[in-house]
């Protein structure tokens, strides 16, 4: 896979320009075969307390997750992170919440055991309060963007970040603020 590397340093006011991208989902490099908790804490370096208290709603491949230690990340897994949500259904989607029974038909069935770790990618989405709080961490670690995703992002970034690009191939983009 042809992968061009690009590093940006941006003003913190520009962080929100990445939010539409994070809502649609971004590809990030990861060691897969690990637990979801390990992905968040060990690889993304998100503090355990933050994972426990703040990331109260998590989806894996569209299924609400209850047990982070018994959820295994596979190549191409789609991981979505959200803070606590309003409404009955917001409460229903909460990880291990009192109302989890109400969505029992779509809940993620816990995996029995971990598989061997390998290099790969996961698709990550960030929603609501977590956009501003986690996007810098994820961006510092790097995103793999398709060329059209990158070009769309470039259109919104400040002029000084414009970059001469090839027409094909993917970009490993890291950004600091």
């Amino acid at each position: 896979m042809k992968l061009e590397t690009l590093k940006l340093h941006l003003n913190s006011d520009d962080l929100h320009l990445f939010f539409p991208l994070f809502q649609k989902g971004v590809t990030v490099p990861a060691i897969v075969g690990c637990t979801l908790k390990s992905l968040l804490v060990d690889q993304f370096a998100i503090p355990v307390d933050y994972v426990t208290d703040r990331i109260t709603t998590i989806f894996l491949d569209n299924r609400p997750v209850d047990d982070l230690d018994r959820t295994i990340i596979q190549e191409g897994s789609r991981v979505t992170l959200s803070a606590a949500m309003p409404g009955l259904v917001g409460a229903t989607m909460r990880r291990g919440g009192f109302y989890a029974a109400l969505r029992q038909g779509i809940s993620y069935a816990a995996d029995s055991e971990k598989t061997s770790d390998t290099s790969g990618t996961v698709r990550l989405k960030l929603f609501n309060l977590l956009l501003a709080e986690l996007a810098p961490t994820v961006l510092a670690r790097g995103l793999i963007l398709e060329r059209d995703e990158f070009n769309e992002l470039l259109r919104n970034l400040p002029p000084q970040t414009k970059h001469s690009q090839q027409d094909t191939g993917m970009i490993l983009l890291t950004a600091t603020f």
């Binding site: 979505t80 959200s82 606590a84 917001g90 989405k125 929603f127 609501n128 309060l129």
Partner: peptide
């Protein structure tokens, strides 16, 4: 976090992304 942060910041429409993902 819901009544003090999420709802004031985004309103009830904050649910769109989450329901869509589910």
């Amino acid at each position: 976090p819901v009544t003090g942060e999420g709802l004031p910041a985004y309103g009830t429409n904050v649910l769109t992304n989450v329901l869509n993902e589910a």
